[in-house]
């Protein structure tokens, strides 16, 4: 508990202030909901020199739909995202995932950006963002930049963000049709739990055939992954049993799972196949 008592804390009012604070405090960390950061600090896994609290920065809060893109402010709470009518219609996979992210208390505190920056291979929202071709908007001393989400995670707990950068928004670009998207996971406890394996998918259908597909898996590799072989295989095909079997096989081949206290590599690989089938079917049923 010592760390919690002695860490410096700055509550900022703007993104610019946040960047300045990050520049002037080496080893500082941005805090939003704190649902991962505070636990990591208590365990001594994360030892920031300073906490830069952006949870009340107005420009970081809210969901905006403009020029056909959906912009989710970094400090928007998971609850606000999953209850948002546009998100519910345009990105149901993200809603599926948000509902499974911790319990209600966590959903009321946690933010989408926090879940992304925590860079857990099992992060609930990672798969949905991957299949929605999301972009991460970051702001640093030299201004704004955009990073495709599939390039954002570098390893467990590691991201492409510079120490002086802050994630400002998650953007679903225009033209992404996310209406047929879904997320599911395998877990042990039905109440609050962490994914042993999770998967998201998005399909665009034309005359019953897949025009475009995105498939993502979590907790089967050092970062959340896309299954591109399966995506291209699906193109132009109907979601028949045989096709789904092949997709499951391709998905399993794309995994590099580990054995840990939660599951064996063998089980994770098998469940990757099960989940990919299920999310594709679930996504396709949505309209």
């Amino acid at each position: 508990m010592t760390e919690l008592n002695t860490v410096e804390y700055i509550a900022v009012k703007s993104v610019a202030e946040a960047v300045t604070a990050l520049q002037s405090h080496k080893g500082a960390r941005v805090i939003m909901g704190g649902t991962d950061l505070m636990v990591g600090m208590r365990d001594g896994r994360i030892r920031p020199s300073c906490l830069v609290d952006v949870s009340r920065v107005r420009e970081l809060i809210g969901i905006a739909n403009h020029h056909g893109s959906l912009r989710i402010g970094a400090a928007t709470k998971i609850t606000d995202i999953i209850e948002h009518p546009v998100v519910r219609q345009a990105c149901p996979a993200l809603v599926d995932a948000g509902k499974l992210l911790g319990g209600w208390q966590i959903q009321n505190m946690a933010t989408l950006a926090g879940n992304v920056c925590n860079a857990s291979p099992a992060a609930e929202t990672a798969g949905p963002l991957l299949v929605l071709d999301a972009e991460v908007e970051a702001c640093g001393p030299s201004g704004l930049r955009s990073i495709p989400v599939h390039q954002f995670w570098l390893g467990p707990g590691k991201t492409a963000l510079e120490p002086t950068e802050i994630l400002t928004a998650i953007i679903i670009p225009p033209g992404v049709d996310g209406r047929r998207s879904a997320y599911q996971r395998v877990h042990i406890r039905h109440s609050v739990d962490i994914a042993l394996v999770c998967s998201a998918a998005r399909v665009v259908l034309a005359d019953g055939n897949v025009q475009e597909a995105r498939i993502a898996l979590g907790a089967v590799a050092p970062t959340p992954i896309r299954v591109r072989e399966a995506e291209s295989y699906l193109q132009g095909r109907a979601l028949s049993e045989e096709v789904l079997d092949k997709v499951a096989e391709l998905a399993q081949a794309a995994t590099q799972p580990i054995t840990d206290v939660r599951a064996s590599a063998e089980y994770r690989r098998a469940m990757a196949g099960v989940l990919v089938r299920r999310v594709l079917q679930s996504a396709a049923r949505r309209a």
Binding site: G103, I188, R189, H190, S191, V192, D193, I194, V261, R262
Partner: peptide
């Protein structure tokens, strides 16, 4: 309680799962 080489590997309520209402 899972033990590997004498060490408890799940000494927390994330990996030691007591039931919730949905269970």
């Amino acid at each position: 309680v899972l033990v590997k080489d004498g060490r408890v590997t799940n000494p927390n309520f994330l990996d030691y799962r007591i039931p919730g209402f949905q269970d």
